[in-house]
Amino acid sequence: MRSLVLKRVFDLIGAGLAIVLLSPLIAIVAYLVRRNLGSPIFFTQMRPGLGGKPFVMYKFRTMSDARDSEGQLLPDDRRLTQFGQFLRSTSLDELPELWNVIKGEMSLVGPRPLLMKYLELYTPEQARRHEVKPGITGWAQVNGRNALTWEEKFKLDVWYVDNWTLTLDLRILWLTLLKVVRRDGISAAGHATMPEFRGSRNG
């Protein structure tokens, strides 16, 4: 219980300071999203949080609303603009998630919140990633990010659940900064981000 309180205090202080210090940058990115992609400037989606409980996650938009002749949205890789690629490669699209941290729905560090439909596809071991709050960054993100397979990412997520310490969180945040500067592991080969998870091959 003490460790959970400590992590929450760390999240509140860290996210609060980040919002204050980065507010000019957040405002600039919001303006650029509006100018390049139009409204809305935020991408919102229901994601599973602690225990799989759904919450609304906020990000800056990175994709256009381009559609085919039948009015259907084009594939992600065709809607991801050069500007959107820049936001993703610098992780600037993640800045609105600081509000999710303030609200207590996310943590600065933890397994990334994925899609609700994946919940029924996890093995019992993989589902343990939801024993902690999802994070803006995580152990999998600093060890390969989207260049990893789903199974590799989930193993790293569960390792984090079993080995969390405040020192580990600080280390992950530092490594995240280095990853952002180097723009490593932004997407899987042949995909705008990651291919869809369809369940583990080993069941």
Rank of each mutant, 00 (worst) to 15 (best):
R79T: 10
T62V: 09
F83A: 07
V101W: 02
E120P: 07
T81D: 04
V132N: 00
P113T: 01
N146G: 06
A140Q: 04
E97F: 03
T149P: 06
V109K: 00
V109S: 01
N143W: 01
Q141A: 01
G71V: 13
Q72K: 15
F83W: 14
M106Q: 09
W150F: 13
H130W: 09
G110T: 00
E120T: 14
V142R: 07
L80T: 09
L119K: 13
E120L: 08
Y118D: 11
F86K: 03
M106G: 08
R128K: 14
T123A: 08
I136K: 00
S107D: 04
V101P: 04
G71C: 12
E105L: 11
A147S: 14
P96E: 11
R79V: 11
E97Y: 04
V132G: 00
G135L: 06
P124G: 05
R78Y: 07
I102M: 15
P75Y: 09
L108M: 15
Y122Q: 02
L148I: 08
Q126Y: 11
I102Y: 11
P75L: 14
L115H: 03
K103D: 05
D77C: 08
P124Q: 05
G110M: 00
P75K: 09
G84D: 10
E151D: 15
G84V: 06
R112V: 05
E151W: 04
R128W: 04
L119I: 12
N146S: 12
S64T: 12
R145K: 09
